[in-house]
């Protein structure tokens, strides 16, 4: 098999594993604050191998997450494409920053991501464009914290996977 195709398949496999982890259903509040591992793994690949992942991967997994999360079709796709673009645009800077600083950037990114998901696209509330409230803000904070804590694990795990299987 062509090396490039094999690499892409291995990257898709890692994203699929992340999707499996994301699709686990928790029977408590953790369900609403659990980190999105698909997004974290996608960020890693955009940073590590920007020439192997791109818009198509982001779009495909965005739509899959849309289906899983029952959100408006295309919403996660749109956000994943934007994040992919940002990561690829600034990956030179991002990959040389220390891991703690990367976690902080992930924290900021995840707060924005979660807040955009709260937009009232279907106009269900008369006076507001964003459905976010105090409780949602707290959830957003926990979500971002958990994502930034998870980032070093995702980073080193994906790096191990890349060095073991992809060998670039």
């Amino acid at each position: 098999m062509n090396k490039s195709v094999k690499d892409r398949l291995l990257i898709y496999l890692s994203l699929l594993i992340a999707l499996i982890i994301d699709s686990y259903n928790f029977s408590n509040i953790f369900q609403f604050i659990k980190p999105s591992f698909v997004l974290l793994v996608l960020i890693y690949w955009n940073m590590a191998l920007p020439d192997r992942v791109g818009i198509t991967t982001a779009l495909l997994f965005g739509v899959l997450v849309d289906l899983l999360q029952s959100s408006i079709l295309g919403l996660h796709g749109l956000l994943f494409v934007l994040i992919t673009y940002l990561c690829q645009r600034f990956f030179y800077q991002f990959r040389i920053t220390p891991i703690l600083q990367q976690s902080f950037l992930i924290f900021i990114l995840m707060i924005l991501f979660k807040q955009i998901l709260a937009f009232d696209f279907l106009d269900s509330s008369v006076n507001r464009t964003n459905l976010s409230d105090g409780s949602y803000l707290i959830n957003t904070f926990y979500y971002a914290i958990l994502s930034s804590i998870s980032w070093p694990f995702v980073y080193y795990l994906c790096r191990l996977y890349r060095r073991r299987w992809i060998k670039i």
Binding site: D51, I55, L59, G74, L75, G77, Q88, R89
Partner: peptide
């Protein structure tokens, strides 16, 4: 040496996503 993503491709993808969202809404 790795070239960054082409803005046209990103723009087309964003338009596609917007169309999906609008048709869903």
């Amino acid at each position: 040496a790795i070239p960054t993503m082409k803005p046209t491709k990103v723009l087309l993808s964003l338009i596609f996503c917007f169309l999906l969202i609008l048709s869903d809404i």
